[in-house]
């Protein structure tokens, strides 16, 4: 993982932008109790991180952006919130792995990275709640199903429908993040000039 000075500054900028969105919008969305706020935040954050990947198409750059955003969130106003921190890092790691395996960032790879990373928002409680808070997987499962049933207006016994639709929502949101990052990234490259990787 070798970055030039310009790469490092560019990564810092995208990490800061992700951090800002988490610090400001995260608090706002949670206060307003907006449904699927986690998905919305991860779409915004990942769009920023994936644009960063377009500007610095090197292995490790997405993880770098995620770590910066996570550290900014860790020290942000309102104190420590474990969930978002683990969420940011998890999303960054998944996106990094996919983008490192698929090579140069393209529309297809960005959408794949985006969709699987946003899916982490759905999977995260099953991993973190039992480990950190000692909640059983059954309780987490029940909460996910109840939330899904309330959101979709379905009965709680339609478990497979709820889970299927929720998964689709997360995957589609991730695809949107990929498309946004590709479109905006290219527009930005035209505006700013060449990428930082001349």
């Amino acid at each position: 993982m070798k970055f030039s000075t310009k790469n490092l500054v560019t990564l810092a900028v995208f990490g800061t932008l992700w951090g800002i969105s988490e610090i400001t919008l995260g608090t706002l969305f949670k206060t307003l109790n907006i449904p699927l706020s986690g998905v919305l935040l991860s779409v915004i954050g990942l769009s920023i991180a994936l644009i960063g990947r377009i500007f610095v198409p090197k292995k490790g750059s997405t993880l770098f952006i995620g770590v910066i955003a996570m550290l900014l969130k860790l020290f942000s106003l309102g104190g420590v919130v474990l969930g978002p921190m683990i969420g940011i890092l998890g999303e960054a790691v998944i996106a990094e792995v996919i983008l490192s395996l698929t090579g140069k960032p393209r529309l297809g790879t960005l959408t794949l990275a985006g969709s699987l990373s946003v899916l982490w928002v759905l999977a995260q409680p099953f991993v973190t709640n039992p480990i950190l808070y000692g909640r059983t997987v059954f309780v987490v499962w029940e909460k996910v199903i109840n939330n899904g049933s309330q959101l979709l207006g379905l009965r709680t016994n339609a478990v497979f429908w709820i889970l299927g639709i929720m998964t689709c929502i997360h995957l589609i949101s991730g695809v949107v993040a990929g498309i946004i990052s590709w479109t905006l990234g290219r527009r930005l490259q035209q505006r700013v000039g060449l990428s930082s990787e001349e």
Partner: peptide, 21 residues
Amino acid sequence: FGLKGLGFSMGVAVNLLPSLQ
């Protein structure tokens, strides 16, 4: 632990935060 340059990037990020906001 391998994230070389993170210190510099964090310094830039912390200084950039108010102006970017």
